Amino acid sequence: MIVPILTFVYDRRHIASSKREAVVELRVTFERRAKWMSTGIRLLPKHWHNGTVTNRVDAKELNAALDAIMVKARKVVNAMMDAGALNLDEIPSRMEALTREKRLFVDFCEDRAKVRVYGKSADTADRYDRFLKWLRAWGHIVFFSDVTDRNIMKMDEDLAKTGMKNYSKWNNYHRFMNSFILDAMDEGMLKRNPYKWLHIEKEKNCGLQKFLTLEEFRRLERAPMGTESLERVRDLFVFQTYTCLSYVDLVAFDLSSIQGGEDALCSDVSVYTAKRGKTGVEFTLLLLKGAKNVLKKYGGKLPLLSNVKYNEYLKLVAQAAGIDKPITTHWARHTGATMLLNDGGVDMEVISKILGHTSTRQTRATYAKLLDKSIITAMKGFEERLNGK
């Protein structure tokens, strides 16, 4: 790997004399090309020796200034190398931006992430960490001045080139970037938010296709997994499906929130009430037999694991059950709601309460097309009954 060479050069044009000063320049050499940048420091030949300012009253201050310039240059060059492309012509403007801003946008994001994940789940911290690692590796938004409409568009285009779907792009990348930009605006570090002017597709109703049919769920519920680890993951998915809990609320599940406590698991009616970790909205649900069976199997303590590992193992669970779908933890919630709506005939308002949505409008926005199918099925059945079939 070819490494850029950074060094200070005095009197490159050989114009200095005992009474005539010459400039000290920073030279960056890479792949047989060189970029020269003035440091603004002019000296007589007697004041420069072995790359150091000497024999001057302000020598200490001038050497400190040169050290600062070298640090900034190395930071810019390293950031560009990490991004996979060193453009020598961009170095001066990036150094100027770094001098003007005094703080990198990526550094600001890392500081804000510590605040945003405080008190949150380990999974949330992992998601922020993955985004920040990607942002540094991508390398196109380093300084505050890089937060432009064009760069956000490039970010979306580059993510799309990986084959990522709109929902994943927004939920795992743009959403975090937008949050950090808003934080920077609150602190006066940025004046405008490119997301205000750009339309980034979010696919809010993407969950519509992300569910298992009743037949697929039954197959997954009963299929032999081969290992205890996969069996625990499968059982967790089954419990989540029967309860329609999100991953955050799954982690927070507490037997003490069941009316009647742990003893209620043996009764016909076990009612669970809690508040959604995401919105704080209270929800109530009946623990169905399938959910209670899982709790009893594990002594009332769910076999939890991190969201990242959970999602990884679910791919293997699907394979073991012969299901060719990229299921994730959120599929369980959608599967449960879909079965209640399509197979159970449960009213939309009841499903909204179970899901802990802030309003039925939110539920309808997600399941509107499925509701349409339920209406069609119900009306066809009504017509058949009218015709005596």
Rank of each mutant, 00 (worst) to 15 (best):
W36N: 06
K309W: 01
H140L: 11
K301G: 00
T29H: 04
M225W: 06
K380D: 14
M155W: 14
K389E: 13
K154G: 13
P92L: 10
N63H: 08
Y310F: 15
L132H: 10
L355F: 03
K210D: 10
K202E: 14
N151C: 08
D149A: 14
L220M: 13
M81E: 09
E101L: 03
G345L: 10
V248E: 06
T335I: 11
V57D: 12
L214Q: 13
I2W: 04
F180K: 00
R94M: 08
F237G: 04
A97I: 12
K46H: 15
F180P: 07
G356D: 12
T273Y: 06
V115D: 06
V238N: 01
N78P: 05
R219I: 09
E349T: 03
Y298R: 11
G280D: 10
R136Y: 02
G51H: 07
A318D: 05
P303S: 04
N307Y: 05
Y310G: 03
S267G: 07
D89E: 15
F105T: 04
V281A: 04
V251N: 09
G381Y: 00
K114D: 06
D183P: 12
C244N: 14
L305P: 07
V106Q: 03
I375N: 13
Y167V: 14
N307C: 12
V9G: 00
G344R: 10
K35D: 08
P326E: 09
T162G: 02
T335A: 06
K191W: 07
H47K: 05
G344S: 08
Y313L: 12
M189W: 04
T7S: 04
M155H: 06
R218Q: 14
Y242L: 10
D82L: 13
R20C: 07
L88Q: 01
A137Q: 15
G261V: 06
L66D: 05
E262Q: 12
T227D: 10
K165D: 15
G51Q: 03
F108G: 09
M164H: 03
S267F: 05
V106S: 14
P4S: 06
W138Q: 13
T124G: 07
A252Q: 15
D149P: 13
L285T: 15
S17T: 15
L302Y: 06
A64Q: 15
P194W: 11
K19A: 09
T329V: 06
I375A: 15
R276N: 08
G300W: 10
L98C: 09
T39F: 02
H199I: 12
V271R: 15
K133A: 13
K161Q: 11
F176K: 12
W48V: 09
T54L: 13
V76K: 00
F176N: 01
I258K: 11
P92K: 06
G261E: 14
K72Q: 13
W170A: 00
F131M: 11
A365D: 15
G356W: 09
V147K: 01
N342D: 00
